[in-house]
Design a protein around this nucleic acid. Structure first.
Lengths: 168, 168
DNA sequence: TCGAACTTTCAAAATTTACTGAAAGATTTA
DNA sequence: TAAATCTTTCAGTAAATTTTGAAAGTTCGA
């Protein structure tokens, strides 16, 4: 397999994985493209490479920047904006997990808290089991949340170690 | 808030969370419904409660069973089939994570392995950086995979402890 | 202040995904 | 074996999401 072909395959597969996890195909593909590109790319280059429209490119690049895994680069003397992806996979994964927690899990936790305020006899069998289930979900989420925060905060992640091995 | 209302809210919110994670709304809602229902429910009851068609009910219940978080219950003397959800949230979460890994992540890992077989000079800067990135993803995935397997296999999970506290 | 070069927006169109309902299939009882 | 009861399938339809492309907006040098 040629390098170009391998890169294309990688982009395609990253796109599929993205859709399965609720991320749109194009966004995942742009991310993959920037991951395999050494040089930062302009909107025009991304459009040409993935054969997508200008609007689509713009929206998804912005979204990737919101997630904190792509950043805008300005080259001196160039009018165009260029984009580049965070290359450390550990950092990428942690940013994504952290962000999803903030955007998706936390709002649900707020609702769960409200659902525990139920009118009626707290000793009633049905009410008891409902509150207990909600509490279980909260406990699980808090536990998971703590675990993630711990990982994200790690100064020295496992990855730094493995990366150094590449230079023997 | 009344208990019935709280249950409905829970079902709605679970549905939203589901879609954000790439699971279809109805499937998540049926799961939520069975979670808050003490008694196993028949297809007809699920249909009535969520106002969905028979076909939709059948397909999503089957899918939930494939995921191993809902099971079929046969009541003696009853012709109908009833369904009930695994109530231990820890077990539910582990099954889901394990299953997604198997279905979605593992196939991608197979592809990644193939992508490393690139024609050309392995010392070429571009080839080197590409292979190194693929390797990084593999390392990360393997590490995460091991972590999950470890958690799933734990005989005594934290949750059992917190559950017992409910009985003081 | 103008206009060239570029970015952003968003309504409409295209695509993808989910749902319905009727028909076929299965299982049990008589 | 037939009828009754329940489950499964799937083609067609509906709904949701994504993408396009043209127009509006922005920035900057002259």
């Amino acid at each position: 397999m040629k390098l170009t072909e391998a890169k294309q395959q990688f982009i395609l597969n990253w796109g599929v994985l993205g859709t399965q996890w609720g991320i749109n195909r194009t966004m995942a593909q742009i991310h993959a493209l920037l991951l395999v590109s050494i040089e930062p790319m302009s909107a025009d280059e991304i459009m040409a490479e993935l054969k997508i429209s200008r609007g689509n490119t713009n929206m998804n690049v912005r979204e990737l920047m919101d997630w904190g895994i792509v950043e805008k680069i300005l080259k001196p003397g160039e009018r165009k904006e260029f984009f580049t992806a965070e290359k450390d996979i550990w950092v990428v994964a942690m940013r994504i997990i952290k962000e999803r927690k903030r955007r998706e899990v936390e709002p649900v936790l707020v609702v769960l808290e409200q659902l525990k305020e139920i009118e009626g006899d707290k000793n009633d069998k049905d009410i008891k089991q409902f509150i207990s289930m909600i509490s279980d979900i909260q406990k699980f989420s808090n536990q998971a949340s703590k675990g993630i925060d711990g990982m994200v905060k790690m100064d020295e992640h496992w990855f730094t170690g493995t990366l150094l091995k590449l230079f023997k």
